[in-house]
Design a protein around this nucleic acid. Structure first.
Lengths: 196, 196, 196, 196
DNA sequence: CGGTAATCGAGACGGTACGTCATGTCTTACA
DNA sequence: TGTAAGACATGACGTACCGTCTCGATTACCG
């Protein structure tokens, strides 16, 4: 792999970047996106605001990184279990084990709002968050079709929306808990519903 | 019914209330919640900011009213069609006919974020928005159980989360369209999935 | 004495007027003009704001009345004592006995500021406050000229400005006390200064 | 003299400070203190309101600076002329030459009102305005006593109140003009009055 | 090993919205 | 008609945040 063509001048401080991410994570978890100011964040990170903005173009982009990093860390990468039911469980169960302990509902809602308003951020959001979560599901469904486990004509996107949508719905509206039992029941209903 | 005991003092201006709601509706549709300032809103309504704040404690509460009024207006109240499939269609199809033409995704996302941060607003949100939409679905499922159309043990809340969640998911993430065909397909999958 | 030609409708409440003046006096003494709001004042007087504005066109006009009434009450009307020194003392000494106990400096300063900005109020201020205080002094000086006590060419207005100005100066700037001894000394200096 | 130890961070913009003072001077002269809004002022100065409040705690403090700077600029510093009459003239005549052309009466009245209400501002006012003007007069009187020109027992403060008070009186109440002739006459009366 | 250049901290800056408050007017029901 | 109650338009207030900027100080490389 080619070495990065080392630019001149003082190199960026990896330590600063990490401090910013740590501070952002802590503050976002505790207060949510809107209640966190960039001044406060820079203070907590022991960093100047200019340094934050040198690395991230906006508060939203930073929050998205926090989300992606944190989520990425919790995910035991989905396995090919041989059955669609097993694959879906291996995808969804890690989420519901972690999500309740991290109040990211508020952050996700705020980023969704921003994605609706800001086309540039929307592209980032789709790529870094939506597709990142959806692709394993798409893969599992494709494999199931290949195996003849589900009809070839099944609308994979709809199946994902039913399952992911239910989880996001409870996460965002908070009207009920989300746990393994519920995830399993949801998977059962949907798989039964799409069987021949 | 007893006549309202007419309070003393100048009565509140219904015209002003309506002007505020109208202006808020127009601005929310056009710009989204965060991009609407209260000054701008009051200006457009031909009303003073103090008057807005006299009747709504915050921009969020006002937006919630806008949403409730607008959504309430579009709804041909769900009918008892005799079958669960018919009932669910009569509930969900009006939504998907109207939602795409009103970019409320951004507004709902912003209100969700606020509901996560602000306990008072959360209570309001649950009562005025979440339950208001869910209750017809709960009723339809209860009737279906009485008729023996679905097993008594069916988890009604989960069924609603699967259906509503799918719709909200597409509305909020915007990764795919939501239309009658999709709603019908979703209903079919879920009803098949919960049949004996 | 002819009875006032009783107008139709509910007669004005003299009690209300007095309550307003009393409340205004109390609040002005305690807080000064700018720190008193008309809502607060009406509340304390047990009166509606509309009633206040029916009798006084503005807060400043009301404050001017308070000042005039209060000042008028304290004044034993200046007597013709036979000498200019005696006349001036009988005019000025009542002021310095009462002024220190009533912190009207702030009120007078605020009204002066308003008089500078508002021509209508300026006329009121000149008539009700400035001339009301100056006229007795003018009279005393005119009598002294008639008696040959001071030269006919004496600039009476300047003499008054020296004496009144000194008192107002200490009242407004608060850099030193004002008492009978000082008033007497001031009168002595000025009378010596204008003697032949 | 030690070099100022250059603080870290972006240095304050002297240009902005000057623009604020210039704008404040212009607006105060044109409209008076109460009729000038901080928004308007910041706009005219081409500066944000936050910057104004960063350096001046209130509109009053800013107006005091304007007054001090403007007054300081007009003053040919009082000279030691050898006689008390000459000294007092050299102090007072510059004022009356400039004051009529600058409608600071309203501003001074407003600041007086504030000084009566606000202890912190009162201290500022005394130091920056009252004593600043009085000290040259005190000095002149002290010199005159040393020279034996006036009795040692003369109450210097009262003398200053008679002279300064007369000028402020006309400036504030506006019932008569103030010019060199009047100032000279006032000085003559008082000096005659305090002679042995 | 000294010059060059990008980064860092600190924090001031322009801009913009916030939610509150006070003034003086207006609109009702009641006296 | 006068009054209490209180809603109303207007407009300033002082605060907070965003994202940009300008400093001196720091830290690498490159010549």
């Amino acid at each position: 792999m080619a070495k990065a063509p080392r630019r001149r001048g003082r190199p960026r401080s990896e330590k600063a970047q990490q401090a910013i991410l740590d501070a952002a994570t802590a503050l976002l978890i505790e207060h949510g996106l809107d209640a966190v100011s960039m001044d406060e964040l820079a203070d907590l990170a022991g960093v100047s605001k200019a340094t934050v903005y040198r690395w991230w173009p906006s508060k939203h982009a930073l929050a998205l990184d926090v989300l992606a990093v944190d989520w990425g860390a919790i995910r035991p990468p989905p396995r090919d279990t041989g059955t669609l039911r097993g694959d879906l469980r291996s995808i969804l169960r890690p989420w519901v084990k972690v999500l309740p302990s991290r109040p990211y509902g508020a952050v996700i809602a705020a980023l969704l709002a921003e994605a609706h308003m800001n086309p540039e951020f929307r592209a980032l959001w789709r790529a870094r968050f939506v597709d990142e979560r959806r692709d394993p599901g798409r893969l599992a469904l494709a494999r199931a079709k290949e195996r003849g486990e589900i009809p070839t004509g099944t609308d994979a996107e709809l199946v994902l929306d039913l399952l992911y949508g239910a989880i996001y719905h409870r996460l965002l509206h908070g009207h009920g808990p989300m746990n393994e039992r519920i995830v399993n029941a949801a998977i059962d209903i949907v798989l039964t519903g799409i069987a021949d």
